[in-house]
Design a protein around this nucleic acid. Structure first.
Length: 567
RNA sequence: GCGCCUGUAGCUCAGCUGGAUAGAGCAAUUGCCUUCUAAGCAAUGGGCCAGGAGUUCGAAUCUCUUCAGGCGCGCCA
C-alpha cells in the first residue's frame, strides 16, 4: 500500500483530464503533434510546505510545444479541475507550478495501513516475485575477512532485505573461490609452514608470493596435532592436498561463523570447484568458441573481447592448461542465469574490480544471455579513522584489521548501521571514536532511543489503563499539530523509500529513512504530550506513537538491528 | 597514456530521471527537564555546489572542458 503513489496517481489523472477538457474547450491550444501527457507529468512533494503538499510541473513542460505561457496553461487546467473532497485548494505559483493543498485525510489513512500490515508495512509488490540472486562478500577462503568484506556484507545483506520488501524472491549467495591459483598458493604456503614447524625454519624456503599471515602457521600446527609428521613422507602433491583440505574447510567454517555473528546467513554457499568438477567451465569455453569468440595464441585460449567492443582480450585457459578465474566466473554466471534460472543476478564487488564488469557482461552476451540480467554493484573501499587519523593496522595484531577485530570494539548494531549509512558508490569513512560512543552522537542509538521511548510511553499509559485502540475507535482528525502531520507524512513515505532503495540498489536510503523517522518522532515528542486530559487526543497520539514504533521495529528488523524496548 | 569513480558548510555526507530561497549530522554558540526516557528538543551562525563554457523558461543536477583526488589497465583473483 503506497499512499503517496496513490495520491499522486489520482491527482495526476485529475490534471490530465482537466487538461484534455480545457483543450476541448479551447482554453488551451491543442498540440500540433500528439503528446503523451502522462509521461511528462511530474508530481513532487515541494521542499517548502508553502508550496503545497504536491506540485505539478506540466504547464511548464507544455509551454514550448504549445507555444503558450505556462501560467496560461496552468490556469486552463485549474479551471477545468473536477472538485475533489481531498483537495483543499489549488494554486498557481512561480513560473507555472500548480500546487495542490490536500486535506489531512490521506495522512491519517497511514495509521490504518500500518495497523493492517504491522511490521510488514512498507512492503510493496514491485518485484512481482522475480527471482533475484545477490552474491556478496565471497571473501577469499584463504584468510580472514577485511573491512571491505565487512562493508560488502552489510550492504549485500540489507540490499537483499530491501529487495525482499520490494517483492522480489531473493537468494543470498556466497561464492567460495576454492580452486585455482590462490588455492595453489595457499597449499604451497601451508606446506612450507608444515615442514618448517617439524624440521626448523631453514628446512624449506617460504614461497615469495605465499600467504605470510600467522593463520597459516596456526593451521600447520593444528594439522600436526592431528596428523603428526606422517605427511613428510608423502609426495608434495598429497601433502598439499591434505593440508588444503583441512585448512580450507576450517576457514570456510570460520567465515560462516563470523558472518553468522554479523547476522548474515546465506541461502547458498557455492563452490567454484564444483564448476570445474562438473565440466561447466569447459562447457562455457566451448560455447564461447562455438560462437566464434575465442582464439589460440602462444598456447593459451583467449577471449576476443575486442569483438565485443572492449579494449583488451583476456586469457581463458593458460598455457599450462588451467582455466583462469575469469573462465570459471563466466561458467558461474551462466549457472546463475541459465541453469538456476535467476531473472536477475546482482554481484556486490569492491570498486577495484570495476575493470571486470564490462568483460563479464560481454561474455554473457557472447553466450547468448542478456547482459542486463547481470548487475554489478561496485562498492568503494572503507577507511577507518580514529582521533581523526586513518587507521590501517590493528594495534593489537599489527595486521590489517579484520571483521572480527572490528566486532570486538564495535557492536554489531553499530557496524551494520554505519556500513549502510553511505551509498555504495561513495567512499566510506568509518569513525571508530563515534562508533564506540554510546551516546546521542551515535546515530544508531538515536534511532533505537526513539523506539525505546515509544515503548516506554505505551507501557506508562498501559499502567494507567489506557491502551492503544484500533483505528476505527480513534479520531485521527484531532492530529493537527505541525509535528504530528510531519510524522504522519514520514510514515507515508516508507513504501516509496523502499521502491527507490530497491530500484537503485541502495539500502542506505532505508538507514537514512530510519534516522529521519526518529527525528520526526523526537520532534513530535517534545512538542506534543501524549498523556493528557483530552482522551480523544490522547488516543490519537498514542495510536500515532504505536504506529511509529511498529514501523521502526519493522525497519530495524529489516536491517537486522536490535530494537530495544528500554535504554 | 587510456578507462571508471569522486569533488556540495570547518568535518562526514544527502540532494543528481532538471524545478521555487541548496539540506542533515558532527563541531561552535544560546535556550528547554516539579508532568510520558535530556541517549531528546528548539534556535543562531556557517556555502562562488572544485573552476570555466554550453543546453534550458529554469542547472548542484544534463553536455563539453580544465583542475584535484581515488581506483583499474597480469597467462592475479
Amino acid at each position: 500500500m503506497n499512499i503517496i503513489e496513490n495520491v499522486k496517481k489520482s491527482i495526476g489523472d485529475a490534471v490530465i483530464s482537466a487538461l484534455n477538457l480545457s483543450i476541448e474547450k479551447g482554453e488551451v491550444p491543442a498540440p500540433e503533434e500528439k503528446i503523451d501527457f502522462e509521461s511528462i507529468l511530474k508530481l513532487e512533494i515541494p521542499k517548502d510546505k508553502q508550496h503545497g503538499d504536491f506540485a505539478c510541473n506540466i504547464a511548464m513542460m507544455l509551454a514550448k510545444p504549445l507555444k503558450v505561457a505556462p501560467r496560461k496553461i496552468a490556469e486552463g487546467i485549474v479551471s477545468c479541475l473536477e472538485k475533489n473532497a481531498d483537495i483543499e485548494k489549488v494554486e498557481i505559483a512561480g513560473a507555472g507550478f500548480i500546487n495542490f493543498y490536500l486535506t489531512n485525510n490521506y495522512l491519517y489513512s497511514v495509521l490504518s495501513a500500518i495497523e493492517k500490515m504491522g511490521t510488514d508495512y512498507g512492503k510493496i509488490d514491485m518485484g512481482k516475485g522475480k527471482k533475484v540472486m545477490i552474491e556478496f562478500v565471497s571473501a577469499n577462503p584463504t584468510g580472514p575477512m577485511h573491512m571491505g568484506n565487512a562493508r560488502g556484507g552489510a550492504l549485500g545483506d540489507c540490499m537483499a532485505s530491501v529487495m525482499e520488501y520490494a517483492g522480489y524472491e531473493v537468494t543470498r549467495e556466497f561464492y567460495i573461490n576454492d580452486a585455482g591459483n590462490q588455492i595453489e598458493k595457499f597449499g604451497k604456503s601451508l606446506e612450507a609452514r608444515y615442514i618448517q614447524e617439524l624440521k626448523g625454519e631453514d628446512a624449506i624456503e617460504f614461497p615469495e608470493d605465499g600467504y605470510h599471515g600467522e593463520d597459516i602457521r596456526d593451521h600447520a600446527r593444528e594439522f600436526i596435532k592431528l596428523n603428526g609428521d606422517k605427511y613428510l613422507e608423502t609426495s608434495s602433491e598429497d601433502r598439499k592436498k591434505a593440508l588444503v583440505d583441512y585448512a580450507l574447510e576450517k576457514n570456510i567454517k570460520y567465515l560462516e561463523t563470523d558472518l553468522g555473528k554479523y547476522r548474515i546467513f546465506y541461502d547458498v554457499w557455492f563452490r567454484e570447484s564444483e564448476l570445474h568438477k562438473s565440466g561447466a567451465v569447459g562447457e562455457a569455453i566451448k560455447r564461447l568458441t562455438d560462437s566464434g569468440y575465442t582464439y589460440e595464441e602462444e598456447g593459451a585460449i583467449w577471449l576476443n573481447c575486442e569483438k565485443m567492443g572492449l579494449e583488451k582480450n583476456e586469457v581463458l585457459v593458460r598455457q599450462n592448461g588451467i582455466p583462469t578465474y575469469f573462465a570459471a566466473d563466466i561458467a558461474y554466471h551462466i549457472n546463475k542465469l541459465e541453469t538456476r534460472k535467476y531473472d536477475l543476478a546482482i554481484d556486490v564487488w569492491g570498486a577495484d574490480h570495476h575493470g571486470h564488469v564490462a568483460r563479464m557482461k560481454g561474455a554473457m552476451a557472447a553466450v547468448g544471455l542478456n547482459p542486463d540480467s547481470l548487475e554489478v554493484v561496485l562498492m568503494q573501499l572503507v577507511r577507518l579513522t580514529r582521533d581523526g587519523e586513518v587507521v590501517r593496522m590493528s594495534k593489537r595484531t599489527g595486521k590489517a584489521i579484520t571483521l572480527s577485530d572490528l566486532l570486538e570494539d564495535v557492536s554489531i548494531d553499530v557496524a551494520r548501521f554505519f556500513f549502510n549509512m553511505r551509498m555504495a558508490g561513495s567512499h566510506l569513512d568509518f569513525d571508530l571514536d563515534l562508533a564506540v560512543k554510546e551516546s546521542s552522537e551515535n546515530p544508531v542509538y538515536y534511532v533505537q532511543y526513539a523506539h525505546a521511548r515509544i515503548c516506554s510511553i505505551i507501557k506508562a499509559l498501559a499502567n494507567e489503563g489506557v491502551s492503544v485502540l484500533p483505528f476505527e475507535k480513534i479520531n485521527p482528525g484531532v492530529l493537527k499539530e505541525e509535528s504530528e502531520l510531519e510524522l504522519l507524512k514520514k510514515l507515508c513515505e516508507l513504501p516509496e523509500e523502499i521502491r527507490l532503495a530497491a530500484i537503485s540498489r541502495e539500502p542506505a536510503r532505508i538507514t537514512r529513512y530510519s534516522i529521519e523517522l526518529a527525528t520526526a518522532f523526537h520532534s513530535f515528542y517534545n512538542a506534543c504530550r501524549v498523556k493528557c486530559e483530552d482522551e480523544e487526543l490522547m488516543g490519537a497520539r498514542l495510536k500515532l506513537c504505536a504506529s511509529v514504533g511498529t514501523v521502526l521495529r519493522g525497519i530495524l528488523k529489516m536491517l537486522k538491528i536490535d530494537a530495544p524496548e528500554q535504554m
